[in-house]
Design a protein around this nucleic acid. Structure first.
Lengths: 211, 211, 211, 211
DNA sequence: TATGAATGAGAGTTCATTCAT
DNA sequence: CATGAATGAACTCTCATTCAT
């Protein structure tokens, strides 16, 4: 088997993920990241192998390890990058939505998130991984929830502060469900089910805004 | 030889899961199943080892393989049993709900599903497994959706037939989200978020019924 | 390369060295131990590979790991066995030497130790290993020194108690040197140098006895 | 390609250790040598990595390989330098000791050797390495033994020629034991055991001189 | 049938060494 | 000459699976 032993906050000296200086290196890393995202997305964390990731990037296994000293850290790094991107997107969205109707904000949020998940196919896989450092996980979720809360606070009408945390958490999960529906269900249901989901969430948030 | 990696639809003759006749055998299988559920729930499919499952059941590895010829088939068998139980429960619920208010039916559904998931801790793990035989997966989902559709068809008012498939699929996912919220999120959000989820779903279904 | 990660008292759950029940198993283990001793003796700890040890025992790598869960533990187990054998031998020698002349005891000790080291060619290699758990090392040395002290206490004349610990430690090292001289030096010097060593030690101990 | 394992007398063209002409180069080599000595002393030959040696010298690996084309040759070069230093010291000592009492010569030898070993912490590690080219090893030992023989030949009284080679070899080993005692044993024994060792050796040599 | 030792492919990881820049 | 990314053979260790007893 493999890393067999792994669990987020461990020993193993934690040599940090290296950022290369030379241009060649930066391209290499980009290729590695892309390959890793693809392989994780296709196979899941456990089934993905470092060997395949390296091969798919056209690199040697040693090269992969030069930049990402463990499989665990590779996953963590990818996840962190994707989280940062997502959080940034949410912030931008919150800014755009300020003073705009809640309904429109929800639609927009949905659209962007679907785009994001299509662009980051490993996101769900990496988020759901057991063995993630629970601290980091909590922090990440809080960050995202914060972004959504800000969004829901600035619309017209705003969602009442008291219900915002719970509704933000709920919204986050709805996104995930939307992604799953989009991807893996009976083809004939994809469209309708996602539509129902969107309508449901929008109605619920709007009702909260009015409440 | 041993191939350690095996994935869903393979060669490998698929010797069927043996069902024992003698009482000793049936007890043994029950113990193995229980142990497997526990280990899969705790560690996930990949991290679970056949050795640990056998040990926890107080059986030898050889014994485990007597009844479940591959790890894959063990997981599939467990999953199938749990799905059957769930489907049965949905059927019973549909019968009970016939002629009763939609609202009450939804609440009941929710309550029962939460109970079910608590009683079958490996259910989510086994459902989310990639590498499942996609055919079987589709059939299973269809069966469950069917149960929920029946439920939604018999209430007063009933959910319109046209929207039933999508709403059934959606409801199924909502359950999963509820389970996740119940289990892994920020403690302070569990209660409120689940409450929001339930209210949201109920309102949406009721609106559909009225529509 | 080798253990990459290793350092005596570590994490890694320390599954204990298994002692097999079946006869076949006991023979297997004996073959593995023999092979390990040979390989460690020839190549040293780091250069020895688990693969070669298994191959030389006519076993598979998996079989080796069934009984000795890490290379580290394999070395530790071998070392412990050899230490126990040596300590036992020293105890027997101390019993034999009680009441006999110191001079004869020293000669006998020397002879037996040379025999022992010839019979346990990995002994020096395993003793000198850096990365041994220092606690265990200290205990082992103390045990051996104790055996020699007892020997030196029971002869006629006895070595004075005050000097016994230091002289026992010294004697132990002289043995090692004798083994090294016996093994790896210029052929023409082996005999004479060992003779000088023996004479030197004997004279020193006798002088201590008279003092 | 890379063969990671290389052992003593091999193919590999043996590009010689480069000696730099420019001052910058000489400084660089000095830093590399110092770093290598430290790392070998701390970690042993096998565990030491070329990467760490280079890093500790503030150089790049490429730079290290410029001067020392293999790890093996690096170790050999260090060892050779240290041996040369030691031999030189012995020669000086032999000169000083000419016509002086044997007893004093022995004490002096001991004192200088302890100093030397403290100043060259990797000496023992590099000497004990298996896989050293046996020819080179023999030559080195012979050179050292020669130095000690010369010493023992010039004192008053001199050690008889016939016993000189064996006694020189023995003395050399005693030094090593002294170093080991100094370093790794039970603290409480260090002083006394080394004292016994010194007394023993001195008495033996003096007796030889008188014989 | 039950048992558990045996098997070996395969996974993660390291590090000596090379070579383009 | 210096640099450090690139390479890949080799290593330790795991675990699904088989099979002699």
């Amino acid at each position: 088997m493999a890393s067999q032993k792994a669990s987020g906050s461990d020993e193993k000296e934690e040599r940090p993920v290296r950022t290369p200086q030379r241009r060649r290196g930066r391209e290499r890393v980009a290729a590695l990241v892309e390959a890793a995202v693809a392989v994780f997305a296709e196979q899941g964390y456990e089934a993905a192998t470092m060997t395949e990731i390296a091969a798919r990037a056209g690199a040697s296994i040693g090269s992969l390890y030069q930049f990402f000293p463990t499989k665990e850290q590779l996953a963590a790094e990818l996840h962190a990058r994707q989280l940062a991107g997502l959080a940034e997107m949410l912030d931008a969205l919150a800014a755009e939505a300020r003073g705009r109707p809640l309904e429109a904000a929800v639609d927009r949020l949905f659209a962007r998130l679907v785009t994001f998940l299509e662009a980051h196919p490993a996101f769900v896989v990496l988020s759901e991984r057991r063995n993630i450092d629970p601290q980091a996980k909590k922090r990440a979720r809080a960050r995202l929830r914060g972004g959504i809360e800000a969004l829901l606070a600035g619309t017209v009408p705003p969602v009442p502060a008291a219900r915002r945390p719970a509704l933000a958490a709920l919204t986050l999960h709805m996104i995930r469900v939307a992604a799953l529906l989009e991807a893996d269900d009976d083809t004939s249901l994809r469209g309708p089910a996602v539509a129902e989901l969107k309508a449901m969430l929008r109605a619920h948030l709007v009702a909260a805004g009015d409440g």
